[in-house]
Design a protein around this nucleic acid. Structure first.
Lengths: 211, 211, 211, 211
DNA sequence: AATGAATGAGGCTTCATTCAT
DNA sequence: AATGAATGAAGCCTCATTCAT
């Protein structure tokens, strides 16, 4: 037997992720859960409270789920990155606008709520920061000379973009998109090319970036 | 002497870019321009009309401004990408959430409006598609085996992310962020390349990013 | 102690019957009942909801009140007609534009609401249809060769006309008007009747109308 | 070449008859005539002015058209009634809510406008009053002991009712409805009349109506 | 734990009208 | 003759929230 609160959190998450904060009304949640508006407020104190509860529930559990990968010493950073992208995109496919939801609507929130939310997000993003750091240590080309936090922001932005355009049943599956995103970040010259004759054109991107 | 309409478009753009569509009220615009709410509606018919007018004004002129770069036959694709990122980030720094504004709030719009907006966006994004295409032809590692449109989406997502976190006067300037984003996408330096012939030109983004 | 809802229905009925649907604002009702506009909407969901509630309350109870007469097997159809006219005109005198209110303003209503209202009206009008039918069977001259439904429409139109011109305290009382309307429909030749066999019942309409 | 004013009157009439006074906006008329709202007001001073102009145009010309029948000394009153019903129903079929339009919405009008309109209507209705009067003199059963004005009101009400329910292309044509309405008012055929002078034609409303 | 009653603030839009041109 | 600019008033509705039960 699922408690009212659990159902509330579950459905509120779904609705808010899909409609955004200001696009969601207390009424919408109440209807979905089949309780009264008053009951929703009763549990969460306010609309902000709903958001806070959702994130306080969602983000930590997402972190808990993915942390083992981040902390796995046997994995290369690049592989962790690949898995992170997969993980995040699956969340988006399932729940919608999980991650940006908040800040994007943060205008409407109290300073206090904002701070809390930003902490959650920082924590989540921190997983990515660690991964990028690891990659920078292990790989001699990826993210070279790039600020780790900016890189993390960039990757987060990329990974969140499907919230806008991804549609279930589209041409590409989520895992295909994940692979391609990974490719955008990591695709590099293949090993065998090192032995190919020097390329006639020297001003490829690589050349521009090397000192 | 600036006409009411021009002032309306100008201020409405500013307010909507900053507050998002649903975060903006007709009243807010009216107050800023110092006309009555009725006057705002008089010019735009409806709130949707305001959005449409803004985008119909903004996006085409952004396209007009950047198109020459896209079509410049003397430029390498990678350089165009660098310039695109700079261009887009400057827009964001100046106007805020120009590009995603729309779709993100698209839920609230009529199908018709949505179609129009999506067309604008497609046109804008198309510039990036062309650039990625050119890069794929010229470069043998970047975007290899990646669907051009997915790559464009990925880059757009990355480039739009500062709408969420960028603050004027932060640690990094917009152009620094732009350079780093560019680096995230293109840094592929490899040990063995160090032995390739030195390039005559040392400036361009590469120099800024290398240590 | 009368509940807010009851007061709301009561006053809303009064105001709407008098001012018509579009002539009535939610504000007017709120003021009369001394609650806020929000409260009115709280109870009825929308302005249409008010109309629906009024009619759903009013018409069925009017039908319930008059049905016994319609179904009374001991009464002649003509007598039922007389009573119907009286009944309907009394309603008009008391409540105003009860019956036509709706359809006349039906333009503004959703298809769904319209359907509901038309059903109410059909039910009400059906009482008249039954009466006309009975008359056609019993009387060898009234409504001969006339479509029952058209006759009912005609009579309804006649009976509703006082909504336009009737004023309390005018020259004619409601019951006088009712009698005259009845006469318009049923007055028949007198002279030749003198030669007919005496009718068992002398208290038909004829007796009331003849001098 | 039709003048703007003429087109304005023509289209405004059509729209107002169909939508009622408060159901019609200046904008609607402007759109139909393809001029600006200002132009509409320019010609009529105000929305009330539109109504007044329409009625001042419409009703007198309707009276002018039908008066010859009313004043025709060679026609029986009953025949005039038949023709009046036909005439009025044809107007309704063509123009909609011609007659009741006004008073029904009269609430919203200034006292002055109201007076003017009521005069128009009285004049129109007066044709019917005259007809009823004539019938009362000629016929020994119809409208016996009925107040002439009440009878006229009753008939007007009946004749206006199709504004509510008549739909072009319905089961009954306008002229059929007219015939049936006429029958509702006059069908008084009696068995004993069969022995009065034989009527040549037994079908059609005429047969029912001849004395 | 759960809810109905009630509300104030605000939002978008319609509308008739005035005014200057 | 015809119009665009501008507006104030009003209308319906949404929404988050408070309170008493």
């Amino acid at each position: 037997m699922i408690s009212t609160y659990e159902k509330l959190i579950k459905d509120a998450t779904e609705i808010m992720m899909q409609n955004g904060y200001s696009g969601t009304s207390v009424q919408m949640i109440a209807e979905k859960v089949k309780v009264s508006k008053s009951t929703v407020i009763h549990y969460f104190k306010s609309k902000e409270g709903i958001l806070l509860a959702i994130l306080g529930n969602f983000i930590p559990s997402a972190i808990a789920e993915f942390s083992p990968v981040v902390n796995d010493r046997s994995l290369k950073g690049v592989e962790k990155l690949r898995q992170f992208i997969c993980f995040h995109l699956q969340i988006i496919a399932k729940s919608g606008d999980v991650y940006t939801l908040n800040i994007r609507e943060a205008r409407y929130l109290s300073t206090e709520s904002r701070r809390i939310i930003e902490n959650y997000q920082r924590e989540y993003e921190n997983m990515l920061v660690k991964i990028v750091d690891q990659i920078k240590k292990e790989d001699d080309c990826l993210f070279k000379n790039i600020d780790t936090h900016v890189a993390a922001k960039a990757i987060m932005g990329m990974c969140n973009s499907p919230t806008i355009w991804y549609k279930k049943g589209g041409l590409l599956s989520i895992s295909e998109i994940a692979n391609q995103f990974f490719g955008v970040l990591t695709a590099r010259e293949k090993i065998d090319r090192r032995f190919q004759r020097p390329r006639p054109s020297a001003n490829g991107p690589g050349s521009q970036l090397s000192s």
